[in-house]
Amino acid sequence: MATKAKDVMVTDFHTLSPQITISEAITKFQNATQVENKRIYGMMVTDDSNNLVGMLSMYDVLLFLRPKHIDIWGEMEDIIPEEVFDTSLQRLRSLQVGDLMSTEVISISPDTNLLMVMEIMIKYHIRRIPVLENEKNILGIVYISEVFYHLLQQCQD
C-alpha cells in the first residue's frame, strides 16, 4: 500500500502564537530543538482556535536581519558585522511573530501520497509541510528528514 503523509508525519509538534515576540519564538525554537533532539528550523503559527495562520522559519527572521543594501557591502572595507546587526537586533526586539511570519503556507492532507509530498518539497524548496484535515485542523507536520529516511530506507537494507 502506498505510503501517505499520515504515515510519516510527526503528531507531537510545536506551535507559536502570532502575538509572542520574536525573541520568545527563538527560545521556543531552542526548547523544541532540545525536546525533539533534532534541529527545528521552522514552526507553525496558530490562532486562539488552533487554526493554522502561518509559519515562522529561521529564514523569515534572517530575511529581516539582512541589511537592505547588502549588495554593495562586498565592496565596503572594515565592516564589523556585530555593529551592523546591533541596530537590526534592536528593531527585532519590538517585533512579534505575526509581523514576520509567512502566510502563504502550503499544506497537505493526511492522504497525500509520499511521492507527492517529496515533489512539493523539491518544487517549493520547503523542508516541512503541515498536515491539515478539512484544510483547517492541524494533524501533524511532515519533515523532509522523515520523507528522506523513509524513502531511502531500502538503500541501507
Binding site: F64, L95, G98
Partner: peptide, 11 residues
Amino acid sequence: EKCIRYMIKFK
C-alpha cells in the same frame, strides 16, 4: 495587513 507585513519584512 499583508502589505504592511511585506514592507516590514522586506524593508
